[in-house]
Design a protein around this nucleic acid. Structure first.
Lengths: 346, 346
DNA sequence: TTGAAAGCGCTACCAT
DNA sequence: ATGGTAGCGCTTTCAA
């Protein structure tokens, strides 16, 4: 191939096929009103010319961007170790590509920035719709986007009042069975290392833990603040060791902090699981690479992404989209839990 | 705000400001030929109307998509644990956003698919340019993209003949100093767990290791095939244990496989670093979360992303872009290495 | 400095 | 079934 031959346009195709532009368009897009013969001829000419429709033209005429946006709100350096991110995006892509849609991915460090990026994406009509995850209590993105009538699909939005359709994966059942498992192993004091209070899913996990504890007649009182990071887990471990309520098991709001807890306990001479049992949440691959391997709640970010993308495309096409609940997360027992140490009294 | 008020266009702005569309356009884009007074008035009207230029219009008229593409070639489930991915994308984003560009991210499972996606992105003019990483020997993407005159910037392309500009981070110096460090600790047999032969960077790391070994008068003969995965590392550990050449240290082509090696050795009763020292490559965060913490070569994916994006934008604007070399990767010593076990003879 | 108008590539409507 | 044509929202000449 020689120098930058300007790409063939639909006009070229029409001319070469000896038909009107409108017929060429109809033929290429499987619209009715074209004879089979014409359709075939146009197609042949089109791919002989290597014709690929230009997005900008389609976009301008059809008033659709053929892309959807996702803004990841993370510290640049933390994205690496993010559990949800990769899987969710992979899932999104999986539904998007066959439909000719692309994903515009943006990254933002903070809440204000991420809202600004979302608004910018939608207002510049760079995207036809948006994904939202990690919903905050009083999340300001919600009002900003509903005011603009943006098609939006959320992942794991809180139940109840919520302005957009959401795909959800229930984790409460898994949390209940994890508590039950620990109780069976003799544990009575099961602590919880939380996520940041600002997030709906932090609260949800905490509530699920608390209610499971209560249903076993146990007091959900050992609550250690965490922040979903490894370092937050390390700090939580320190607090736990200094705590005098003698927790023998800990349920952490995510795997990364659970691993922080685990490693810190180890460094301080506390044995896992002999002295303290640990359970995380997410099932990041890392959990299988640490020693002891981490018991956790297995979630399905990729599936959530696939479903979310399907929902969003439907919403963009004007359909009334219902919430979808995927199969609930499941408790996965690995090495990090065992029976309550014999010498602990209650 | 009420229902879907159609967004203001430049025509609305021009009319409201009482000027021609062309003047409004010039005023809004800082082009000369507009009086300060007009400029001010147009701007005022524009943001009173909440005007945001529509991408499709700009795109069609200016023949630019204002986005660039990146196709990640990964198994959907592996993306999660990918070290390079997140940082690189974060860096790209960092340079893109201030310039009004967005990133179109695609994911592909295999080589053929990823080439198809790249071609599709560029031919549909959905993007103005592309990033390439993980270059293969005889990478078919190269010809496909140069034939199409696509602006492309690669990350860590092989030195020598290469059709596109590349940002690179040298790792050979770090590998040399890692070998030197191990030699100082008394090691003589330093094995290498490779990446897949198909990748240029696998070869590069292996060559660097071999040449460092030779410069110390050591034979680079213990080469164990790996594939950059955790499981590949586990398998390599098995091979290593069964190998009779008595390696006392291993340099793995990446951190993930190094951690696989480490955990597997541990399970098989080989102590790290007492019996065998281990070094990885990448410096993924995970390396600091395992026990012992992993010695490694620290790379800078985010910086590579930032620089690559700057280069790509320049290339898109027609500039002749030179290769850029960022500060070399550095060897980071952590707990996974120590002196050669006393009982090993050579 | 300003305005008018052409045209980017496509879709969609309306005649024929 | 087919062709002509009016835009979509913007940039960019070119006259005035």
């Amino acid at each position: 191939m020689s120098k930058a031959s300007p790409r063939a346009t639909i006009t070229d195709v029409a001319r070469a096929a000896g038909v009107a532009i409108s017929s060429a368009s109809a033929a290429l897009n499987d619209r009715p009103g074209v004879s089979t013969e014409t359709r075939v001829r146009v197609r042949a000419v089109a791919d002989q010319l290597g014709y690929v429709p230009a997005l900008a033209g389609r976009s301008l005429a059809s008033k659709r961007a053929f892309s959807v946006g996702f803004v990841v709100e993370r510290d640049y350096d933390i994205i690496q170790s993010d559990p949800f991110f990769g899987g969710f995006i992979g899932g999104i892509e999986e539904s998007l590509t066959p439909r000719g849609y692309a994903l515009a991915l943006q990254i933002s460090q903070d809440e204000a920035g991420s809202e600004a990026r979302l608004v910018e994406l939608i207002e510049s009509r760079r995207v036809d719709g948006l994904f939202l995850d990690e919903i905050r209590i009083n999340d300001s993105r919600l009002a900003a986007l509903s005011a603009r009538n943006a098609p939006v699909v959320a992942a794991n939005a809180p139940r109840g009042e919520f302005p957009f359709p959401s795909v959800r994966q229930d984790g409460t059942a898994a949390i209940r069975s994890l508590v039950e498992e620990l109780v069976k192993l003799g544990h009575r004091r099961i602590a919880h290392v939380t996520g940041p209070d600002a997030y709906e899913h932090s609260i949800e996990r905490r509530d699920a833990w608390a209610s499971a504890m209560l249903s076993h007649g146990l007091e959900p009182d050992v609550v250690i603040p965490g922040d979903f990071t490894y370092e937050g887990g390390e700090h939580a471990a320190d607090l736990l060791v200094e705590d005098d309520r003698g927790a023998t098991a800990v349920f952490c709001a995510n795997d990364l902090s659970a691993i922080g807890v685990m490693n810190r306990l180890h460094r301080r001479g506390v044995r896992v699981p002999e002295d303290i049992s640990i359970v995380g949440y997410d099932d990041i691959s890392l959990g299988r690479y640490v020693r002891p391997t981490l018991s956790t709640v297995q979630t399905s970010p990729r599936l959530l992404g696939t479903v979310a993308a399907e929902m969003l495309l439907a919403a963009i096409e004007g359909a009334k989209v219902q919430d979808i609940e995927v199969a609930p997360a499941a408790f996965v027992r690995r090495e990090s839990i065992s029976t309550r140490p014999a010498d602990v009294k209650h």
